[in-house]
Amino acid sequence: MFRNSYDSDNVTFSPQGKLHQIDYALEAVKQGSAAIGLRSKTHAVLLTLKRSTGELATYQKKLIRIDDHVGVAIAGLMSDARVLSNFMRQQAMQSRMLYGRPIPVGRAVQGISGRAQNNTQQYGRRPYGVGFLVIGRDETGPHLFEFSPAGTTFEYYAHSIGARSQSAKTYLEKNFESFENASLPELINHGLSALHDTLQQDKFLTIQNTSIAIIGPSSDEVEDISISGAAKRGNFRVWENEHVDRLLRAWRRSRGEPEDGPQEAAPAPEATTEGGAEATDSTAATGGDSSSTEAASAPASGDAPSSGTGGSGDDVEMQ
């Protein structure tokens, strides 16, 4: 395995001016399944592809509510995501308690990027192994931010992170000019199309693997507001499992596909075993293990082993 002498701590620059540990942390984000965010002038939405660790496991949640007006999608280490999202919740609550004001979305993101930057400058610490897409709505309108383990935040019209997110980015870059004035159903359809592009060829979006979060006024075209107080108020809400069915159907209709969607072929049994074995490997050596890294960043070859619906290299921690 390739090694270099400048990656054993996170505070020493390599002669090329790189902090290798941070690059490895960014790789951890790429191993998580895809998350996509986009926004119009009224709404911000997140779409994620959920993974399960096997046939008997549930799909791991990738959308986290921070406050009424803020929520995140994660890609990377679930446990790091929990620490960071709890910190964001604390910040959001402090703003509400102390000033009676919902925290401005950008400042909520600044809060975690400050913490992440700290980890890149103190000896004995490691960078967070997770990336966030943060959506929110405040007095300056809807927002979409990306947070990365490097401690940077950027605001986007549309963005994607995680495994095979480049395919989604290609779709988003081609279409983002129409997002600004898109209605909520249109915006979600664009998001689902982008999410679809991150899938391997034999995989499909299903109610099990797709979850969608929305901030902004509800649309009864695709949402059932009778079961969500948050939707009624335009707050952050998540649609998944049976509740995401309506959104998926609307999307398939918009593409002129059969509404019920293609029936997914049962996964080959040997693929499951192989994926499970690999998961154990990459758990033992996170980030530095180039075998799982290469698997995730390798171009879609079609015959790559996979157990779930996401990219290859499924991992208990990587979501």
Binding site: I225, S226, I227, S228, G229, K232, R233
Partner: peptide, 8 residues
């Protein structure tokens, strides 16, 4: 008063 939670 509108539902605070899931409603219904």
């Amino acid at each position: 008063l509108g539902a605070l939670g899931e409603g219904g």
